[in-house]
């Protein structure tokens, strides 16, 4: 593939729907017209979203739709908070999609374990959608999801749908429950010990805090999953998303163009170095 001159200008797309997920998170559905300069992207890839006049942030795709771009955004700064204020009919600038996505091709015919912490469920939801769309192509699907509190769970109605289905195993845990919570409390990694999968023919995909991903990877390696079948998605500060601004480097890797999804074996040594 020959190199293309990087698209500098955001493409305006219309907000088709907004769903409030939690006190600080929303899911935006953007209409993507036929022939749009912004492609549909693949699970694990991300777009740079630009609320007009404010700034740009890297936000992963949280569904696998071709007609729309779906992004779940947690408001943690000026740009993400401005994205959270968008209403249907508003316009948002988009550059993308960028990056290497989840290994869905490699996962065909295998069991899949998804390990999500907090907002890390958003990029993995796109995997769940893709697997459910072509369910027979994959083996068992096990999802371990950890949120801080019950109120901070994303996609609550969808979680219930998934829990009701027989073709997906989903286990949810929280760091701290409340008066209405009767589910599990504790680390998400505790859900992995008895995950009903065949370690020899399974692909693991993890997204969440780095300490969680490292623990999850170690746990699954301990269960006999080959290291080349364990994948993680990393986050660093990004400005250009195209390997040109230098911000997202971790050792020799650019998170934007080499990642954000990496085979764990490629990053485990780097992630063990403090402040890298």
């Amino acid at each position: 593939m020959s190199a293309a001159v990087t698209q500098l200008a955001p493409v305006p797309l219309r907000v088709a729907a907004v769903v409030r997920e939690t006190a600080d998170s929303v899911t935006l559905t953007l209409a993507r017209p036929d022939g749009s300069a912004v492609g549909p992207g693949a699970p694990g890839q991300f777009n740079m979203l630009y609320p007009f006049g404010i700034g740009e942030a890297a936000i992963s795709l949280s569904s696998d739709s071709a007609e729309t771009l779906v992004h779940t955004v947690r408001g943690v700064g000026a740009v993400s908070e401005a994205l959270g204020r968008l209403r249907p009919g508003d316009w948002v600038g988009v550059r993308g999609p960028f990056g290497a996505g989840w290994p869905l091709e490699a996962a065909r015919g295998r069991d899949i374990v998804l390990v999500a912490g907090g907002i890390g469920l958003a990029p993995l939801r796109s995997v769940i959608h893709a697997v459910l769309r072509d369910r027979a192509a994959f083996g068992r699907l096990f999802v371990a999801y950890g949120a801080r509190t019950p109120r901070e769970r994303l996609y609550v109605a969808e979680l219930e749908d998934w829990q009701a289905r027989s073709d997906i195993d989903i286990a949810v845990t929280v760091d701290a429950g409340d008066a209405h919570w009767s589910g599990r409390v504790g680390f998400v990694t505790a859900l992995l010990a008895n995950a009903p999968i065949d370690p020899a023919r399974c692909i693991v995909m993890a997204c969440g805090p780095e300490v969680m991903m490292r623990a999850a990877a170690r746990q699954m390696l301990g269960r006999g999953v080959p290291i080349e079948n364990v994948y993680v998605s990393l986050e660093r500060n990004m400005k250009c998303a195209a390997g040109l601004c230098g911000h997202c480097q971790v050792g020799p890797l650019f998170m934007c163009k080499d990642g954000p999804v990496f085979p764990f074996g490629r990053v485990q040594d780097l992630l063990g170095v403090r402040e890298i």
Binding site: M1, A3, A4, V5, T6, L8, A242, G243, L244, K257
Partner: peptide, 14 residues
Amino acid sequence: NVLQRGPYVDAVYN
């Protein structure tokens, strides 16, 4: 190499 030879080409530098 950095700005013209990667998967993306920097338009300003180019």
